[in-house]
Design a binder for these strands. Structure first.
Lengths: 115, 115
DNA sequence: TCGATGTATCGACTTTAGTCGATGTTATAT
DNA sequence: ATATAACATCGACTAAAGTCGATACATCGA
């Protein structure tokens, strides 16, 4: 996962409506779009769009039953995604770049820091 | 942390520039804004704004050394924040709302599902 | 086949986020 | 005091996200 992909994942959960959708589906195990429309009081078009964003981000899975699309959250996968985000951010901790910040900045200025 | 706060936290990491800033600072332990400007090739005003967003979200801490603002990431805190986000999303898993989705939707329609 | 229901997409609009140059602020060095 | 350097904020502009009504698509029941 590169930085752009990390940003995209977080972007999926950066909207209050989408967080509520995820929380609702976690609580109910499975929900269809029309139930979400009732719960959230938003237009069906809007809810469908948010669901699509969460689906694209891999946060929601679904199965079709008749005309319904039953949505669910793979919680284990979600935990795994969160974990790998942290690992990615924390990668690159090699000693070579760990020069002390004050030392580095003093060199940058070509002078000592008087403060 | 309510749903709005969760969304705000994720929004802080929903931008590629900000993810790069966090990764850079993690790798270097501490960086000032002017170093970030050099690394990212963006205007100082822009970087300062992104830094402010990360600071407001509690992801960046800082200390002043002369005119420099040295930024750092509290990685343990960040891990804790991620953990509590998941806990919050997964809260509310009480048996009462776990009625089977097909059963619930069938009742909603007042008819049985034939599919 | 036809109508009804659930979902997805389109078009248009409003709101919010991102970007930069210019300017303000604070701390330091001369 | 004044100049300089780092950072923050402002104003204006552009780009992207969110929202809704209307409409298209798909599936089922009659």
């Amino acid at each position: 996962m590169n930085h752009r992909a990390i940003a995209r994942f977080h972007a999926a959960l950066s909207n209050e409506v989408r967080v509520r959708i995820v929380a609702l589906i976690c609580a109910r195990k499975e929900m269809c779009v029309c139930e979400l429309v009732d719960e959230l009081g938003l237009s069906q078009a809007n809810v469908s769009r948010h669901v699509g964003i969460l689906r694209d981000a891999g946060i929601l899975q679904d199965r079709k039953i008749g005309t319904w699309v039953l949505l669910r959250v793979d919680e284990a996968l979600l935990r795994e995604q969160f974990g790998s985000l942290l690992d990615e951010i924390h990668a690159g901790h090699v000693a070579s770049v760990h020069m002390d910040a004050e030392q580095r900045l003093t060199e940058r200025c070509g002078r000592a820091l008087c403060a």
